[in-house]
């Protein structure tokens, strides 16, 4: 197995970035961000062929669309640490006149963001459009998306899922962050999702399950497996089982930290659990 220590170091640093961003403005969404840290770090640093000098059209590049835009803290940290913009800019998160808006947007021209997201359920459709154009342009790269599991309650997701299967959109890998939590409680309590593998397979998708979504090696193996399934006339879904708030013991496994920020003491404890590896911004 490849040495993934550099990814693990980055994961720890990104977790620090997440809680520091959210703490600084006493707002934002740390829980889902922490749970998706291994996935985004791995995708941007070990999987995608992408150019941080950033061109909106992204021709001959792999593309990523964040559909659950509220996990912007992890997205911004990973983009900055991939070279899209200076890491110091993370200190402007959610502040007036920032490019790092509460939810990601193209409106302020932040490199790395290709679509606004926040109102849920829209990213898969956008990705399908971009994937279709890649085929028209003879561009063989892959389009990735990330969605929350609660987000699957939006009907547009299933419009998109039906379209992608019916039209052989096989250059699309949509990952579902299966953490079982949403704002009002567990997904089972709020609106049970049923068997997601069965649902996606019934819609005509290939499904890859990653049971250890907070383990870099497992995540990398899952994405690589998904990549072997591209180009076979079916869209691909990764069911990524993660733990909300992962990496910070008092935030883990609960919906309580979906959308609230740590106080000073909680921040100190969170940072103690995630020692600085690559330098804070």
């Amino acid at each position: 197995m490849a040495d993934t220590q550099h990814l693990k170091d980055l994961v720890t640093q990104v977790r620090r970035d997440i809680v520091r961003q959210v703490h600084a403005v006493s707002s934002g969404h740390p829980g889902g961000s922490l749970g998706c840290t291994e996935f985004l770090v791995t995708l941007y640093n070990e999987v995608m062929d992408h150019d941080p000098s950033f061109n909106m059209d992204g021709v001959n590049e792999d593309l990523f669309f964040l559909s659950n835009g509220h996990i912007s803290p992890v997205f911004y940290s990973v983009l900055a640490r991939s070279g899209y913009f200076p890491v110091e800019e993370l200190s402007t998160f959610r502040k007036l006149n920032t490019r790092l808006q509460g939810h990601p947007t193209t409106h302020e021209g932040l490199p790395g963001v290709r679509i606004a997201s926040g109102s849920l359920g829209q990213g898969m459709s956008v990705a399908i459009g971009a994937a279709a154009v890649k085929k028209l342009n003879g561009d063989t790269k892959t389009v990735f998306t990330l969605h929350g599991d609660g987000e699957l309650q939006e009907g547009q997701i299933w419009e998109a899922a039906m379209y992608a299967a019916a039209n052989d959109v096989d250059n699309l890998i949509s990952t579902i962050d299966v953490n079982g939590q949403q704002i009002d409680g567990s997904t089972d309590q709020v609106l049970a999702l049923g068997d997601l593998r069965d649902k996606f397979e019934a819609f005509g998708w290939k499904v890859v399950t990653v049971t250890k979504g907070n383990d870099v090696d497992a995540v990398l193996a899952g994405i690589k497996e998904a990549l072997t399934l591209t180009g076979k006339k079916q869209p691909i879904c990764i069911l990524l089982h993660t733990e909300m708030g992962n990496g910070i013991d008092f935030m883990m496994g609960s919906h309580a930290w979906h959308g609230i920020a740590p106080n000073d003491e909680q921040l100190a404890e969170a940072l103690r659990q995630n020692p600085e590896t690559l330098g804070d911004y």
């Binding site: 992204g58 669309f65 829209q122 459709s125 459009g129 279709a132 028209l136 419009e159 379209y163």
Partner: peptide, 27 residues
Amino acid sequence: ERFFQVGIAEANMMGMAAGMTIGGKIP
């Protein structure tokens, strides 16, 4: 090849159209 029948799914159509601009198309 440049016509996309999306079915009775207007929300998906609008999202797809947005995505198709990425790569230089005019939907």
